[in-house]
Design a binder for these strands. Structure first.
Length: 280
DNA sequence: ATTAATGTTCAGAA
DNA sequence: TTTCTGAACATTAA
């Protein structure tokens, strides 16, 4: 499930083989499943991109953005199971789009692979991305948040802090897995109202967010047992080995060794926490 | 064999 | 305005 660390890993993985290169072709991969959402349709997308250079590869929240030489931008949204790959997809059946580049390097293509097919690919005209995703739609990046920004974002809301962490308008990049991990490190109960967090809880939240996300990036993200996330070069992430609570219901808390991790549902998603470390 | 669960985003309802 | 629910989809486990 690509969240900030996984998307950052994809971006860093493909960047050296994409930036500065000219698009030679954009191809639909043969795939018997329902087609994913591509706007404009693939033939038109190809026409707009072929012959142009990709000047930048960056991450916007949980999205991958390819900056094109004419000022337009390709935005890839992996959602649940989407991956950006340089080679070796988990299977060929769910390859969706291939971008081919002119010239010869170690890798001359990138692919968007997506098993469930909930991912999307969109071309934004110059300036359109800034208009479509203004600050009130996409909050500040989780890695750039300081304690003061956290305080402002959490103000005056009864939203449980775990639910707030998932709200991309409040803060961009955190998903279900890292929300549980961050709150455990910060020692904050996931159901606590964000607006009632004390100053030192806000400080811990700010520090835990950076700590968890940066370490997860160093470990190239989390590859769960039944999930399909891999790096651009078909490696497993390693951060799953360091998960403290996510997916560890009934296991003893690694921090206090005093209680089993508990699972409950918030906003229709699983939340994991330690009732001792994260009291009240 | 059917059903639930998985977790991100958006449309539409409350 | 804000908050919530269901749908999009494919696969696996129960």
């Amino acid at each position: 499930m690509p969240e900030l660390p996984e998307v950052e890993t994809m971006v860093r993985g493909i960047r050296p083989f994409v930036e500065g290169r000219t698009v030679k072709a954009v191809l639909r991969c043969r795939c018997s499943c329902k087609p994913i959402s591509i706007r404009p349709r693939l033939e038109l997308l190809a026409k707009r991109l072929v012959g142009r250079r990709i000047e930048s590869v960056r991450r916007l929240g949980k999205r991958v953005v390819l900056g094109v030489s004419d000022g337009s931008a390709v935005v890839i949204e992996p959602r649940m199971t989407g991956l950006m790959l340089l080679s070796d997809p988990p299977d060929r059946l769910h390859l969706r789009i291939e971008w081919k580049f002119a010239g010869r390097a170690k890798y001359n293509s990138i692919w968007f692979w997506d098993r469930r097919g909930l991912g999307t690919v969109r071309l934004f005209a110059p300036g359109e991305l800034e208009r479509t995703l203004p600050a009130n739609v996409l909050g500040p990046d989780a890695l750039l948040m300081d304690a003061e920004t956290w305080r402002e974002r959490c103000r005056k809301t009864s939203q449980p802090i775990k639910v707030l962490l998932l709200d991309q308008r409040k803060v961009a990049g955190i998903g279900n897995l890292y929300a549980s991990e961050i709150l455990h490190v910060a020692k904050i109960h996931p159901a606590k109202a964000a607006g009632r967090l004390k100053a030192d809880e806000i400080r811990r939240l700010s520090e835990a967010t950076r700590e968890v996300l940066e370490e997860a990036i160093r470990d190239e993200g989390s590859t769960l047992g039944d999930a399909t996330y891999r790096t651009a070069l078909n490696r497993n992430g390693r951060y799953q080995n360091k998960h403290r609570v996510y997916g560890r219901g009934d296991e003893t808390c690694p921090t206090c060794s005093e209680a089993p991790i508990r699972r409950f549902v918030q906003a229709q998603r699983s939340t994991f926490f330690c009732p001792v470390c994260q009291h009240r």
